[in-house]
Design a binder for these strands. Structure first.
Lengths: 241, 241
DNA sequence: ATTAAGCTGTTACATTTATCACAATCTTTT
DNA sequence: AAAAGATTGTGATAAATGTAACAGCTTAAT
């Protein structure tokens, strides 16, 4: 690791939790901690979905994989994020897999315990509804971006989301995305091939919209990327991966 | 209207409400009724998002439209559905528009009233969380279907969803989609052009997977459509438009 | 009954995106 | 330091999808 990289990794990304300190205090009471080494799964597609996961450190991606080995990355979560699904059915199954992109420390909540708390604490119920509303809006906004403006739109939207989620601002108004990403990963986030991503990124580089520094992607011209995906400047809490 | 069409329209589609009768009774207390004629908007993109809408009769589509006149249809709702967003921010704005596809009767709930009820009634809070969880799963499943298997996959997924939402079973194991849909509408649901939809539908017809009857689309070979979009037989409540 | 408007079907052609194949580069392991 | 493995870059080609233009058909309006 070089000095530059170390300093990049030190950045604490702006986490926009919807949970109040009070709510978090209550939740900490009933969660139990578990460590997940890089590459391991918090849960698999098909597991019973009766838990929520509070990510204390590390990063987790939520994925869907196909028979033929293709993978779709739906989300990338980081410290402070809650993940998992609160489900309307009992005995319901995970629709996706969650895997640790780095070593993770996770607080696990049983859905049954949670339901009791929601009955008891109105504020906690409201906080959870806000969390659910927010995560749904993230999904809807991504849905729109993936479907409406072709692969270049999908890629630019994703780069902006990455910049807003993992970004550290640079001197000249850009963002360094403080997470190394391969072209394959990017392609799995937008349902394209790595070759397409490569070509699109090279186009963006020619236009000085993005660049590479020490293997990290740098967003130089935010406005240009916004123009490609017709960005409407959603609230920052919605513009995430 | 012919006899056939009348009988089609009479079908009461299987509505899978997550709200208990108790919850609905409480909600009815605080909702006020409003009628929306076909073509009118329940709300516009950009309106303050401080209400929820309970659809008593009629159908409503949720859309996003662009500067250049393109339209994306995100959802189609029907009687018994709740719609709108419960938002984490105050003063938050609608991300999409809701327009009446038919004359509608709607019960409107103020978010502020609702928050009080959620504080007071644990069961109601749980019901709302189930509703939110379910609607989110619908969006996620559609996201997956739109991105992973190309336009044909997206179309087949949409046809199956329509069949499960609006479908009346036929004698030979198929579904009649009891809602007339233009190719434009279908294309706006999957982010494609009407010409592509036309070609794809003709292919499906040649393969005896779908057909037309009195202008209604008939799904003949559910399995074939499922194979195209790699359907995983989500719960019926998730397989909706 | 006639007109107008909107929807469908179908061409030819352009653009976008995927596929395949392979070389060049960078990283990690030995 | 060398070898193995992963990632990136790029060209040739194929497949998918969009664009434009227009004829025929259906439905709604006059």
């Amino acid at each position: 690791m070089t000095d530059t990289q170390t300093s990049l990794e030190q950045v604490l990304p702006g986490n926009t939790s919807v949970f109040s300190e009070d709510t978090l205090a209550i939740l900490r009471e009933i969660m139990y901690e578990q460590k997940f080494p890089v590459g391991s799964r918090l849960y698999w597609e098909g597991d019973t979905a009766d838990k929520l996961y509070y990510l204390k450190s590390g990063r987790v991606k939520i994925t869907k994989s196909t028979d033929e080995g293709k993978e779709l990355i739906l989300y990338m979560h980081q410290a402070g994020d809650m993940l998992g699904q609160i489900d309307p059915f009992h005995n319901s199954r995970q629709a996706f897999s969650a895997s640790a992109m780095e070593d993770c420390t996770v607080g696990i909540l049983q859905q049954s315990d949670l339901e009791i708390l929601i009955w008891q604490h109105g504020e906690l119920a409201i906080d959870f509804m806000k969390w659910m509303g927010l995560t749904h809006r993230v999904t809807q906004a991504k849905f729109r971006d993936m479907v409406m403006y072709g692969k270049p739109g999908a890629l630019c939207s994703t780069l902006l989301r990455l910049a807003h989620t993992y970004g550290r601002r640079t001197d000249n108004g850009g963002y360094v995305i403080t997470k190394k990403l391969t072209h394959s990963e990017l392609s799995d986030m937008i349902g394209a091939t790595r070759e397409s991503v490569n070509r699109m990124l090279n186009d963006l580089r020619k236009k000085d919209a993005v660049d590479y520094e020490n293997g990290y992607i740098v967003v130089r011209d935010e406005e240009y990327l916004q123009s490609v995906c017709h960005c409407e400047s959603c609230p920052n809490a919605v513009c995430r991966v």
